[in-house]
Each structure stands twice: as structure tokens, then as C-alpha cells.
């Protein structure tokens, strides 16, 4: 009888414990984050309080200082014209992740009204990124940015969203190039990633946001190992140099398509959507890639 009593007591006590243990091994149920979990101070506009938001464009040191391509060409830019339109800064909740394939959910947004053409090569090597425009904006946390690259309506880049002018030198050979690309692009980006934080606008204060362009994606980086992805995926300058005549290369997209190999031209097209960044942060390109 004593043994039976122990057995009964054991079953009574151990069964619930075993069942609960099984339950504990189950994956907890997924639960989407709620708006209340977000930091209200980071996304809620201040009541009627505004500041100044500077929208800047940056071609980084590659454009201002020049660089060596993956195939050994020393590139020096005289001008890199980009024409930006519909530049919009957002306060988003939840924070926008450009790689999640989701839409921006903005609680506040401000835009630059007119298309602007800027020269990314403008200024000294230590110059600040080029100012596109300033807008009066409600205070808050601007953690997303979008813009389109459209054809300029006038000026040196008339008819093109992107114009690159400069010289390329290698082994005593110098090529003056003027590349005019007419692919229109649209970038949607999340928070800036870099040495500093950007887009945190206090009332009465000034802060900036930056549209960054990574031209090393196009030409590669001679300072990086050949097997680095920045080089394995880049076009380099050799395919363009092959089109030069008497040290001159003046070509638009149609001429590049006509004279480059199909592989090289497709490589060029495939790289363009990766030009746009926010600092080191990646963007979603929504026009050429769709």
C-alpha cells in the first residue's frame, strides 16, 4: 500500500510539471511591436515648434578628392551633377527599414519643392556636403529620406539626371570624360548611418539630412582587395576607356549601350540603383528596378 501511495502522489505532482515543461519548449507567440512601444519623443512632432532642416548631397571623398579605380585608373572629377527632385524627409513610426520591403509610415514629412541640380564635386576636398535646400520643419526625429534623380531642365546637366565630368589617368594615358546618364532613379532610405547622427531637429535649431552617393560601387576601389565585393561587382573604368578616341570620351547612355559589350552595359545598369545611400546606410531603389 505504501508503494501505491507513493506512486499516486508521484503521478499527481509530476504530471503538471511535465506538461508545463512541454509548454515552455514551445516557441512563444509572435507579437508585433505596437506604436506605444516606440519612443514618443522621437516621433511626435512638437506642438507648433519648428527648426531648420538642411538637405545635403554628398559624393564623399571619392568625388571631392578623386580615387583609383579597381583597374588602376586615377580618377579626378571636375563636376558630378545630380538633379534631385521630390526630396522628402520623414519622421517615421515604426522606423523605416529600407531592406524589409515595407512602406514608410510617416508621422511627419517635409519636402523640397523644386528639383535641384547640384555639383557633388563642388568645393575643396574638406568641404561640407553640398547644400541642396533648407526647409522649415516641425521639430522631431527625421529618420527617413527619399528622393528622385530626374533629368535636369537646364544648366550643364540639361536632359540628364547624372553627369560625370573629369579625367582618368593610367600608365601615362589621360582620358577626358563626359558621361551623361539618363536613367531616372528613385531612392527611399531609412536613418543615416555614419560618424554622426543626423535628422534630430530640436525647436529653433538646425540639423541636416544627407543623400549620399557611392561612386565606388560604379568604378571599384583600388585601395580594396581585388576580391572585395566592392570590386567584384564594379564596372571599373577599362570598359569606358575602350570607347575613348584621341583621349576623349563623350557619351550618353544611348552611346554607351551601343558601344559597350552587353555584359558591361548591363553591369552599369545594375550598379546605378546601388548609388544612393544615407551615409553608409542602404536605400531601396524603386524606379529603375521596378
Amino acid at each position: 500500500m505504501k508503494q501505491q501511495l507513493i506512486t499516486a502522489a508521484f503521478l499527481t505532482l509530476i504530471a503538471p510539471a511535465l506538461l508545463q515543461s512541454c509548454g515552455g519548449n514551445n516557441a512563444p507567440q509572435a507579437e508585433a511591436p505596437t506604436a506605444e512601444q516606440a519612443n514618443p519623443s522621437a516621433t511626435t512632432p512638437a506642438n507648433g515648434e519648428t527648426g531648420t532642416l538642411e538637405i545635403r548631397a554628398n559624393g564623399e571623398d571619392f568625388v571631392r578628392e578623386g580615387f583609383t579605380t579597381k583597374d588602376g585608373w586615377e580618377i579626378s572629377f571636375d563636376h558630378v551633377y545630380v538633379t534631385l527632385a521630390d526630396v522628402t524627409a520623414y519622421q517615421t513610426d515604426p522606423p523605416f527599414n529600407s531592406e524589409a520591403g515595407t512602406e514608410i509610415q510617416a508621422t511627419q514629412e517635409v519636402s523640397v519643392s523644386e528639383p535641384k541640380t547640384v555639383d557633388l564635386a563642388e568645393g575643396e576636398t574638406d568641404a561640407d556636403p553640398v547644400l541642396v535646400d533648407t526647409v522649415e520643419a516641425p521639430a522631431g526625429r527625421y529618420n527617413a529620406l527619399s528622393w528622385r534623380m530626374v533629368s535636369a531642365n537646364s544648366g550643364p546637366a540639361d536632359g540628364y539626371p547624372l553627369v560625370m565630368q573629369g579625367t582618368a589617368t593610367k600608365d601615362g594615358e589621360t582620358i577626358n570624360f563626359n558621361l551623361r546618364l539618363n536613367q531616372e532613379l528613385a531612392f527611399t532610405c531609412g536613418d543615416f548611418v555614419g560618424d554622426d547622427r543626423k535628422g534630430i531637429l530640436e525647436p529653433g535649431d538646425t540639423t541636416d539630412l544627407e543623400a549620399t552617393f557611392h561612386f565606388d560601387h560604379l568604378f571599384g576601389d583600388g585601395d580594396a582587395p581585388p576580391d572585395d565585393e566592392i570590386n567584384t561587382g564594379a564596372l571599373g573604368f577599362d570598359p569606358l576607356a575602350a570607347l575613348a578616341q584621341n583621349g576623349e570620351l563623350d557619351a550618353d547612355t544611348a552611346e554607351l549601350e551601343q558601344n559597350m559589350s552587353a555584359d558591361d552595359y548591363n553591369t552599369l545598369l545594375g550598379i546605378l540603383p546601388s548609388l544612393g545611400h544615407v551615409g553608409e546606410g542602404h536605400c531601396q531603389e524603386t524606379q529603375l528596378t521596378t
Binding site: 516606440a38 515604426p94 522606423p95 536613418d191 548611418v193 553608409e280 546606410g281 542602404h282
Partner: peptide
Amino acid sequence: GNWEVAVRQAGHGEILS
């Protein structure tokens, strides 16, 4: 609230909330 973590290396970076 949203804790943010930036991971950066050699010009590549990402920030996650």
C-alpha cells in the same frame, strides 16, 4: 522605446531599431 544599434565596418554599415 526603440533602442538603436549601428554596426559599421570599412564604409559598410546598418542601423537597426
